[in-house]
Nucleic acid binder design. Structure first.
Lengths: 125, 125
DNA sequence: AACCGTTATATCTTTAAAAAAATAACGAAC
DNA sequence: GTTCGTTATTTTTTTAAAGATATAACGGTT
């Protein structure tokens, strides 16, 4: 069946698209997805879990739980924290975290290409 | 960066895989995904929203809301219901619904191929 | 020692989602 | 008109997630 016959089933006033999300799975549960990627990036930018969470509109608690899960599930820590210190403390991400981010970005790009290709086919006459 | 360097970051006792989900989006919100596909299939098999919901471990209410959303969002109804009748009523899916199911299955197959390809690359040495 | 902003953690409250329960209407069969 | 199992809908209850709040520890700086 050609996808165009599907399009005709839908309301023809708007355009439809194929969307989705993906992640790296470990033992059946999500290990690394878009949310954690963004959190790591913001920690790298701000040097703080607290600030990173606020810029994302996320509670500190949830952010901490996410990076705690990341650190405990991976063989090497992805975020190194310091409590106390000249500015009260702070956090930095490791080179391994940067590698994971780059990999996920490239993976995501390939996925976006896939989705755009499917969407184009779906909306073509 | 080669994906294998990412693998080494993770715990090497288990295998990781790239997983995900996709759906057809309409005006920014999900319109048709795996859950609704399965529900339509079970309605086709059982001839009843009620029975279909039970075999999926889903409440009738939620099932009804899903098929109601499907019917109101698509230009042509996907499920036709009858209240009352010789067996109390029942539901059947339309040819349009069957076409949507087939399209989604084919789309899903292409997606699975994509995921398996990525997973193989991720776990390769 | 006091101060600072952060990490770390527990607890309480609020909110949202899901589930459950209850009720009415429907229409063919008898 | 009674029975039957289903659809349709509202209401209530339960559960889970999220959010808010509170508190302590930390370690440089002053």
């Amino acid at each position: 069946m050609h996808p165009s016959s599907v399009k005709s089933l839908l309301q023809n006033k708007t355009s439809y698209k194929v969307a989705g999300t993906l992640w790296i799975e470990c033992e059946g549960h999500r290990f690394f997805g878009p949310g954690r990627v963004e959190l790591l990036q913001r920690i790298e930018e701000t040097g703080s879990i607290n600030k990173a969470a606020k810029t994302m509109g996320m509670s500190y608690k949830k952010a901490w739980e996410m990076i705690n899960a990341l650190n405990t599930q991976s063989s090497k820590p992805l975020v190194i924290t310091q409590t106390g210190g000249e500015k009260g403390g702070g956090s930095v991400i490791t080179p391994e975290a940067r590698q994971l981010i780059v990999y996920h970005q490239q993976l995501r790009q390939r996925f976006l290409t896939f989705l755009e290709n499917e969407s184009t086919q779906l909306n073509s006459i």
